[in-house]
Structure formats: structure tokens, C-alpha cells
């Protein structure tokens, strides 16, 4: 008798085990059915998708991609062609006897001008680094405040930032020049660096990205007694690393390619793009050197973009405008 009389707890355990077994069986059956369905539908869940279509798209994009890459390819090929090959008729799409003479030439030509080329390289790096660091520091704090704090004027500033996306440096260049002339900034480093800091694009991307961070996180930090500065750099920025990376990349590109030819006239202050433009003014005879300089100038932004590509895509997903 004692054998048959189970304790309530034992009964419960038995029932639980039975239930578990039943659930497991059900789950397996469902999985099987699901797999069957998947098989019958093919691996793609989207309609109208097949590998034939994908190959079509791939071929189409490749052709267009070739068109996009052709000029860059020609620049690279021209840069490694020796002089006698540059003037071959008809022009060839490859170099028969590749050399690095053009790169050497570029250096020699640039070195023979008023100031050593190393000075221009230093200028470019200094301007790029200063503009990028200051822009990122300022845009991060301002972006955080505009996205997460409520204070009189916040709304109107947000609106102005969105409208200011229209007025990039290209459009305001002439007017900026007048302002800088009034402030006595022409022919100084600040004429090259300071206008770059105020790019509204970086601020806009920062605002959009920070506003996706949950308010609760910031409230919790406030309760714990953190100041706004601390919240910004200790909590918000580590959580929006992709956005910070993205504005670094965009700013780097803008600063690296910026040609301050009309803002500084002192040879010792000119950056690489300006010097390259001067060399290029020599015309067709310097074709090889021009191509070489374009290739050299292209490498840093390209390398940085490749390294941080996934960050950029993540940030741009938040870039959208909701009215």
C-alpha cells in the first residue's frame, strides 16, 4: 500500500515530468513542420527572390560599379606610368613598365617650392586633427544637450540645426570670407580650422543618434548624482560610439579635402590639396604627378572609411528626419 501511496510532492514532480516530455515532443514536431515549410518555400522568406534574380542584380551592379571605379582606376594607372607611356597613342588602360617615379617627382617638385613639402604635410595633419578633435568634442556635448535636455530655446535651436543642413560650407564660403576678413582671421591657421568646427551635419547626426538612447538611463544617472557633463561623457557617449566614429570620419574627410587656397596665401600655411592644385596648374606635363598626388590624397579617408564602415551604417540608420 505504502508503495502506491505517493506523497503530494512526488505526484507534482511526476506531472511536471510528463508535461515536460509532452512539451518537448510538441516542440520537436513543430520544428519538423517548420523545417518542412522552410524547405518547400526555399531559404528566402521574401517573395520573388531567387538566385537567378540575385545574379542579375549582381551583374547590373558590377557594370555600374565598373563605371564608378574606372576614373579611380585610371588615376592609379596614370600615377604609375612612366612619362613616355603617358603620351602613348592611343592611351592604354594599363602600365607596361610601372614605376614610382611620379611619386618621387611629386615630392621633388613640392620640395623645390618655397617651403619644404614636409611643412605642407604637417599643415594638413595639424588642420585635420585640430578640426576633427574640436568638432567632435563640441558636437558631442551640444548634441547630447539638444537631444536630451529640455530648456527654453531647445526646440528652436533643433529646428535651426536641421535647416542649417542646407547651408554647408560650399554655399556660405563667400559670406564666411567676409566674416573672417572682419575678424582678422585671413592667412592664419584659424581661417582653415574654425569654419570646419561648425559643421551642422555632425551635430545633426549626433542629435539623432543620442535621442535613441533611453531616457531611463539618463534619469538613473541623474538620481545617482551625476552632473550633465559626467552623464554626457560617462554614459551617453560610450553608448553612441558608432555615431562618434561616424562624425569623426565625415569631419576627417571634410578637413582633409578642404582647400583653403583663398583663405591663406602664405606658402608656409598651405595644406596639401592647395599645393597639389598649384602643381596641377602646370598642366598636362605634370599629369603623372597630379595623378600620384590624387592617389596619395585619396588613401587616408578611404582607409578610415573601410575600417569604420559598419559604424557609419549604424549611425546613418538614425539619420532620418521625422518632420
Amino acid at each position: 500500500m505504502a508503495k502506491k501511496e505517493l506523497k503530494p510532492s512526488q505526484i507534482a514532480a511526476q506531472i511536471e515530468a510528463e508535461n515536460a516530455a509532452a512539451l518537448e515532443a510538441l516542440r520537436k514536431r513543430r520544428e519538423k513542420e517548420h523545417r518542412k515549410m522552410e524547405k518547400s518555400k526555399g531559404t528566402n522568406k521574401q517573395v520573388g527572390k531567387s538566385w537567378k534574380n540575385d545574379i542579375g542584380i549582381f551583374v547590373f551592379l558590377s557594370l555600374l560599379g565598373l563605371f564608378m571605379l574606372l576614373p579611380i582606376y585610371i588615376a592609379i594607372v596614370t600615377s604609375i606610368k612612366p612619362v613616355n607611356e603617358i603620351f602613348i597613342m592611343p592611351p592604354r588602360l594599363y602600365a607596361m613598365d610601372p614605376t614610382f617615379d611620379n611619386f618621387k617627382d611629386l615630392f621633388v617638385v613640392a620640395n623645390n617650392s618655397w617651403v619644404p613639402f614636409s611643412r605642407n604635410v604637417f599643415n594638413s595633419i595639424f588642420v585635420t586633427v585640430a578640426a576633427t578633435v574640436l568638432h567632435v568634442l563640441f558636437a558631442c556635448t551640444a548634441g547630447f544637450v539638444l537631444a536630451k535636455c529640455r530648456f527654453p530655446g531647445a526646440k528652436i535651436i533643433n529646428k535651426i540645426v536641421v535647416i542649417a543642413l542646407l547651408f554647408n560650407s560650399q554655399v556660405t564660403y563667400i559670406m564666411q570670407y567676409i566674416v573672417m576678413a572682419k575678424l582678422g582671421m585671413i592667412n592664419t591657421y584659424s581661417a582653415l580650422i574654425l569654419p570646419l568646427i561648425a559643421s551642422s551635419m555632425g551635430l545633426y547626426l549626433m542629435i539623432q543618434s543620442v535621442s535613441t538612447i533611453p531616457d531611463a538611463m539618463i534619469e538613473a544617472a541623474k538620481v545617482d548624482g551625476a552632473g550633465l557633463m559626467r552623464i554626457c561623457w560617462g554614459i551617453v557617449m560610450p553608448n553612441s560610439k558608432p555615431a562618434v566614429m561616424t562624425i569623426i570620419i565625415f569631419q576627417f574627410q571634410a578637413a582633409w579635402n578642404s582647400n583653403g587656397g583663398s583663405l591663406v596665401y602664405d606658402e608656409a600655411l598651405k595644406t596639401i590639396p592647395t599645393v597639389v592644385q598649384q602643381i596641377a596648374a602646370a598642366g598636362i606635363a605634370r599629369q603623372g604627378a597630379i595623378a600620384a598626388s590624387a592617389v596619395v590624397l585619396m588613401i587616408p579617408p578611404l582607409a578610415i572609411f573601410i575600417a569604420a564602415q559598419s559604424n557609419v551604417m549604424e549611425t546613418m540608420a538614425h539619420a532620418g528626419m521625422k518632420d
Partner: peptide
């Protein structure tokens, strides 16, 4: 492909080619 199509606008003054 993203890189290929974005490259020209990133490459500064390469349109001289």
C-alpha cells in the same frame, strides 16, 4: 558595393581624372 559607389564622393579632387 557600398564602398564602390561611395568612393568617388569621398576621394576629394579626383574628378580631375
Amino acid at each position: 558595393f557600398t564602398l564602390i559607389f561611395y568612393a568617388p564622393s569621398m576621394a576629394g579632387n579626383i574628378y580631375f581624372v
